[in-house]
Design a protein around this nucleic acid. Structure first.
Lengths: 205, 205
DNA sequence: CAACTATCGGACACTGTGTCCAGTCATAAT
DNA sequence: ATTATGACTGGACACAGTGTCCGATAGTTG
């Protein structure tokens, strides 16, 4: 399949990717400049991308697919950030947890336009919602695993149920989103510290 | 103002309220039967309410205003539920906290159609978002006050910052929403217990 | 009975969506 | 150099939904 798709008949070396980058870049630009994802029409997007409206539909089924693809890019990086903690040899150290939460928040900040678009869209687009849910499930599973491992190793609180891991995961997600509405780095740091506090208290024995 | 509005010229004793109840009831019915708020058009709603589409606009500026009014009803009850804890003489008792969280979750369950509609709409409707934010601000302020009071009284963890209160508030909100997708009472109880665990650990000295 | 007014029901202009297709044009194959 | 290819254009289309407006209808009140 790939080779067929990539046989670059006509046009430049990698037109397909180039156009799609132009579109995703345009969307990111529009979101960054204050527009809501919902408020950006396909026509707006086409204009900003410098393409015809119908061309958009040659690359994406609808606006939802655009978000889904943007999300895919971010998800990997987000999971990577969580692994700072999940796969660390010493997850029982508070500094490690704090650093992981900082990394996670940095992913949110780096891709804030996308993160906000995802949380906006997943509220009403079933496909985006499913994808978002899947990511959350993945993170919750990891969190549960760390907790279980910690309980075996003795550093984690034996009273903490798997549902505690779920609750903490949701908390981190929501708070990172809230973090984006805050500008001052000092305030952001305070919020990360608060997350560290709640998590370490809930999990550590 | 009220007396002017209530001068019931024409039609039954309280036609205005009656029609609006018919509309809100119809929306609740449609949401409960599986429709998304976004997927319900004003025409659908009018049909279900047994009124003309144009009549809807005599009572509500748009669908957003309908949500806002539904939300208003619930907010009071929700705040009431939180006061089980906020205004209790002994907020340091774990059972009191647990009971408060149970009350909160029960409000979410009772009005689940509305809660889901609000969280769906506030993602893209600025007015609904503002209203939702206001409620959250209110709850966070209360949570901060309890924490501060507890620190003075000595039962609360001195290390817990005001941001900890904020994080916990967001956690409870998100988790109660998630609670609605769970059917089994036992699982719901486990989730409430998890919230109790995290909160008591984070706050109590 | 007459005045009032909420509701009806249909028309209107508008915005946005997703599909389709004939025409253009740069490129790759011959 | 010529031709075939296929991505892109740009405009038209049908469709769904929104919010406004208005004449007609019908029930209530004085």
């Amino acid at each position: 399949m790939t080779s067929i798709t990539r046989r670059r008949r006509s046009k430049g070396p990698d037109t397909r990717a180039a156009v799609e980058d132009a579109i995703t870049d345009a969307m990111t630009r529009l979101l960054t400049s204050g527009h809501t994802f919902t408020s950006v029409s396909v026509e707006d997007l086409a204009k900003e991308s410098g393409i015809a409206r119908s061309t958009f539909y040659m690359h994406f089924r609808d606006k939802g697919e655009l978000v889904r693809r943007l999300m895919k890019r971010v998800t990997q990086e987000l999971v990577g950030a969580t692994n700072v903690w999940f796969e660390h040899e010493h997850p029982e150290q508070r500094v490690v947890l704090h650093q992981a939460l900082k990394s996670i928040s940095q992913v949110y900040i780096k891709y804030q336009a996308i993160m906000l678009a995802v949380s906006e869209t997943s509220a009403y687009d079933p496909d985006v919602a499913a994808m978002f849910k899947e990511t959350m499930m993945h993170l919750m599973a990891n969190m549960r695993a760390v907790l279980k491992g910690g309980q075996k190793a003795g550093w984690a609180n034996a009273d903490a149920s798997p549902e505690v891991a779920d609750a903490l995961t949701w908390m981190v997600e929501r708070c990172c989103l809230q973090l984006l509405t805050v500008q001052k780095p000092a305030q952001r740091e305070r919020m990360i510290e608060a997350l560290t506090h709640v998590m370490s208290r809930a999990l550590y024995a």
